[in-house]
Structures are given as C-alpha cells and as structure tokens.
C-alpha cells in the first residue's frame, strides 16, 4: 500500500526559539497585534510505498522521526498518514 506522511517538527515548549521570537516581533512590527507567541518548526512530507498497512506505516514513520527527523532533546513531532488513492499515484 502507498501512503503520504506529513510530519511536523516543532521546538519543545521549554526550549528557546529565537527564530520564532524574531518572526513574532516582525509580525508585531507589521501591525498584527495579539500574536502572543510564534514557534517555528519544520514540515516534512514523505511518500511511502510498499507498506503492509496503515499501522505499519505509522510505526515506520514514528521510528524515522525518533532516529533522524526530530531530535528529542529539543523538538517534538507529530504526523498524520493518509493512504494514496489510485489517481494520486504517479
């Protein structure tokens, strides 16, 4: 089965995010009041093929996150997985 996985990696709450802070103050400079906090992260899209099922895809992506895509010292991750329909395949 083929899947698309969308992985979101964000800095942990307890960890300083200097880039997010800079973006927040830039938004304020543009006149957007009420932007209390900005956390800047990373979006990763994975195209998976030949996976047994959605549970297997989930396990595989979770392992990829732990081993490479996110650093658990500083980052949290979450992801969603969607089966690719016939017409979406290349």
């Amino acid at each position: 089965m083929d899947f698309v996985a969308r992985v979101y990696v964000t800095p942990k709450k307890a960890i300083l995010d200097p880039q997010g802070k800079a973006v927040a103050s830039s938004l304020q400079a543009l006149g957007y009041d009420g932007v209390d906090d900005v956390r800047l992260g990373r979006y990763i899209e994975l195209q998976l093929s030949g996976v047994a099922g959605s549970k297997a895809a989930e396990n595989r992506v979770d392992e990829m996150c732990r081993r490479l895509l996110a650093n658990d010292v500083i980052e949290d991750y979450r992801f969603d997985i969607e089966e690719k329909l016939e017409e979406q395949r290349a």
């Binding site: 800095p11 960890i15 300083l16 200097p18 880039q19 800079a22 650093n71 010292v73 500083i74």
Partner: peptide, 9 residues
C-alpha cells in the same frame, strides 16, 4: 544536549 540557533540570530 543540543545546539540551536544563536539567541541573537
């Protein structure tokens, strides 16, 4: 630990 972007960017 880990090393992230300098706080002053």
């Amino acid at each position: 630990g880990a090393l992230i972007r300098n706080s002053g960017l």
